[in-house]
Design a protein around this nucleic acid. Sequence first.
DNA 1: GTCTATATCCAGATAGAC
DNA 2: GTCTATCTGGATATAGAC
Lengths: 216, 216
Amino acid sequence: MKQEDTKQRILDKALELFSTQGYDSVSVGEIAKAVGIKAPSLYNHFPSKQAIFDAIVESTAAQYEADTDKINIHVQNAQKDIPVFTEITENALFEKVQQIFEYSLHNEAISRFRRMMTIEQFRSPELATLYSKRYVERILNYHADIFRTLIASGEICAENPDALAMMYVAPVVTLIGVCDRQPEREHECLDKLQNHVRLFFRMVHGSSSQRGESRE
Amino acid sequence: MKQEDTKQRILDKALELFSTQGYDSVSVGEIAKAVGIKAPSLYNHFPSKQAIFDAIVESTAAQYEADTDKINIHVQNAQKDIPVFTEITENALFEKVQQIFEYSLHNEAISRFRRMMTIEQFRSPELATLYSKRYVERILNYHADIFRTLIASGEICAENPDALAMMYVAPVVTLIGVCDRQPEREHECLDKLQNHVRLFFRMVHGSSSQRGESRE
DNA sequence: GTCTATATCCAGATAGAC
DNA sequence: GTCTATCTGGATATAGAC
């Protein structure tokens, strides 16, 4: 029991260190010290430093699914969330995005894992693929699915759900990146996020709320 | 003369190595070997490994301005480029974006520097700020400036030039990130870039080319 | 499982010959 | 400016006592 506890503590502290300094800059001695043991003891739980890194990648994947489920995002099954987006108001949409935004930034494991992946994404083709899948494709596909349905039902107007998803998602990802680098700018980024969501909402809900009619 | 040549070769090779492995994973021995000298000789040109890194950051900044000028982007003076964007066609806009996109990916120094910055962005607040300035703010402000003018002249229709710039720029940045990680996906990303530019173009040029009229 | 002691290796950097 | 030889420190990992 206590041994599993130590194992988890090693993963936690290692992620904490890897996410700010990167894999190579962190020594097993540092990790051990953070855990409260000596470096050699660490090898009773993991056969190598690389094994710690791999275990972090493994275990965080599981947590992600579980946690996103809790706030009602089913990344792997967008159809489930269609009702949430149907006839959603501008304010409700922003609140939803804000919730994900703040969750992504403030959940320690998720936030640290993302920063670690950002630093280590070029280490191997596998990590590169994992990064793209997790932080680009998955989010894009999820929203493209939602938008495709909303377009079909005539609720929003657009031609290309994939391009629309890109336009909707990329700014959010960009703003998360800014906050990862400069957490003190979170408030400013939330403002920009709101402006983005507003613009997007009005854009897809046709020309009724646009100024298009009155120009020229 | 030859000594300045060696100094530059050190910077080039160091950037090449840093951009794929990261600062800490590269030894001065590796850099020296790539240059064709022994490690101690390297200290005749730079006082420390860190000094090499700093020199790269310094020197690449200058190159960026010079090179972007060559393809007619004046990042620090958007007003100069207003004529380029005025009454631009959809295809011409895409070609322009494609040009910057491919330049950013294929210019070795620019591309490697961006990847190095991506890896090292959390090393210090200074690097974090530099990253945000160079890869977010500067591009956003440039386009917001352009859009502000085009909105004022009535050529495009939108309310918030900053949010519009975010929507336009963030997908491009995201796609460049994908290609940095997975260069084999460049073709696919160019397709997505085109779809993005098309959607954006039609969006800001009012409802005339949208399906908005005929829905429901 | 934890520790101390140790093995092995390689890092960044310097001294001084040529 | 380049080299060989070397210093010093710290890395990952193992051996073996408790």
